[in-house]
Design a protein around this nucleic acid. Structure first.
Lengths: 341, 341
DNA sequence: TTGAAAGCGCTAACAG
DNA sequence: CTGTTAGCGCTTTCAA
């Protein structure tokens, strides 16, 4: 390990091993074509000195940064109310770590930060970006596209024409919603309501579409707009109860709003699932399992989505000649039955 | 903005502005002592060319990285179950952004990752580290101390002798716990129980100490060990009810476990706060406000703690001669009354 | 298979 | 106040 302070350079290692800097560089970078005797000497010197390559120097010549930016744009609320991003981050982190790539986190709040992010990305400090762009009208995608950095989006981006020119990872929101609603219908429920998510996000819009796929002629009053939060779920449920006291099932756009709905149903004296069956979306364990009653819900593998995003970005960077435009990925969902429906 | 691809260098800007590289450098870095006429020319050239400094080149000579690592070591669970870290991250991010410093996120899972983190930190890629080391026996602090990187811890570190040699930001866990318990006592409750957090974390230990400060002679059966999770809170509450059916108040170590306790109390037919008063800790809004009934709790300003950690680290980096060993900071807490007590 | 030498883009003395 | 000149530590031709 040697003393702190002056960290050893390639030069020092070369001197100690009795070879040239070039040779040390080759060994350190695992290039073939170095006699094993020398390689051994070099590795020993590296260990003895506690040599760690200087990334700045390396980047300067290679123009690679071994770092990717994770951009999370979320005006205030959601990021911190539900563990969604945390899980996604974990998946990303695992994959990046496995490739020895650093994760630079860029949190933005409002437009003011957009310019900063754009500058950072186009400034050439990272090899790519993983972006969570949740709102239909978000200007960030455009800025990022302009930055000329390889990018993978988390969730289908909502901007027009985006889908084919852009790589993203998402779950099958629409199909998942369909399976939830079909499940409720299969239970014999006939007044099935939907609490939407924030409809300026594609995931919410897609889930609503899925609901409509199964129930094309549904009473419009059976759809109440929520915002993915428990409070929003409560409000929506109250509205629903007001308008249609005879609802016998609710498909909520996520577990958090389902939890809110559950509370309102209980307060109204209704029993779940006897009087009203409830299905959520996400299978956010701490929420779904702890709900009262435990929530039947549509599971998506959030951590895996994160891992995939990172893998996709990294793969694209192999400089593989044909970018193999590994199109976007849409993961399947799975209905998890518990007690609420 | 000019075309992507070949990004302009200092040299290009200098040529365009008709000055030397040194002058451009001075203007870009805001150093005084450049005639305004020239400065204007330079700034214009910068804009026209869309020049962004190459960080790698800059770091190579300045030995500063304008980046700090945020290390979150949490075996699996907690990070993702509660918004604690997310809030802290937001505070950190805001402060770093304001100083144009990047946030490199290092998530670790288990011992295997410790070495990696140590290597990264001592590798000289960041100017400092913000570390969340939550467990008493965590080897990470030692590794990090060995890395010779300025560090600020989130939460009082638990290792022996740590307190004076280490900088940290924490809230007044013990005092907050005292105020919670005093509040319950003030309500006339006489059988006050405590659901602890994970006792290998100083925050949990400190809150337990606070409980004992107020109730030194408390029946040992009134203390049940939890783990900061809702499920842990449920288990603890059940144990409590078993052992002492006459409990009339509960101080839970955080809002999440209070929520679990609430559920068990309700299931047991007890009314809150009439039969049993409940106080939490954190004032995690989505949890505390949405609880049924809304939770009386001890608020700590988590985001501010994050901001402070970053500020403290950055300040220490001013190369101020006397490190001003801006000792650690312990933020006050505040009891927030809602309906549960 | 190895070494010598030339930079990558920038800052920081040091002159002028 | 401004320009010239050395490198920072590393990779990468190019010769040997």
């Amino acid at each position: 390990m040697s003393e702190a302070g002056a960290r050893p350079t390639l030069e020092a290692v070369a001197a100690r091993a009795g070879v040239s800097r070039a040779t040390v560089s080759r060994v350190v970078n695992g290039e073939a074509g170095v006699r094993e005797v020398l390689a051994v000497k070099v590795r020993r010197a590296v260990d003895e000195l506690g040599y760690v390559p200087n990334r700045a120097a390396r980047s300067l010549v290679t123009r690679r940064y071994d770092a990717v930016a994770v951009v999370i744009a979320e005006p205030e609320t959601r990021v911190f109310a539900d563990p969604f991003f945390a899980l996604q981050l974990r998946g990303i982190s695992k994959e990046l770590t496995a490739h020895d790539v650093q994760l630079v986190l860029l949190l933005t709040e409002g437009r003011a930060d957009h310019a900063r992010v754009g500058r950072y990305l186009s400034g050439g400090h990272v090899d790519g970006a993983l972006v969570f762009s949740l709102h239909l009208d978000d200007p960030l995608p455009v800025i990022i596209n302009g930055a000329g950095v390889p990018t993978v989006f988390g969730g289908r981006p909502g901007w027009a024409g985006g889908e084919d020119s852009v790589r993203y990872v998402d779950c099958d929101n629409r199909g998942g919603a369909r399976s939830a609603v079909r499940h409720l219908a299969g239970l014999g429920r006939t007044r099935i309501a939907h609490i939407t998510g924030a409809l300026d996000q594609t995931s919410a819009a897609d889930r609503l579409d899925g609901f409509r796929d199964v129930l094309p002629g549904a009473d419009a009053r059976l759809v109440a707009e929520g915002d993915f939060t428990p409070a929003g779920g409560e409000r929506a449920m109250r509205r629903l109860l007001d308008r249609c006291p005879d609802v016998d099932a609710v498909f909520a756009a996520n577990d958090l709003s389902a939890a809110g709905a559950l509370r309102v149903l209980r307060a109204s004296g209704r029993r779940v699932p006897d009087d009203v069956a409830v299905v959520g979306f996400d299978d956010m364990l701490p929420v779904a399992e702890q709900a009262d009653p435990p929530l039947t819900t549509v599971r998506q593998d959030i951590e895996e989505m994160g891992r995939l995003m990172a893998a996709m970005l990294l793969r694209g960077q192999d400089r593989s000649p044909a970018p193999d435009h590994a199109a976007s990925v849409v993961l399947p969902t799975e209905l998890v039955r518990r007690d609420s429906a």
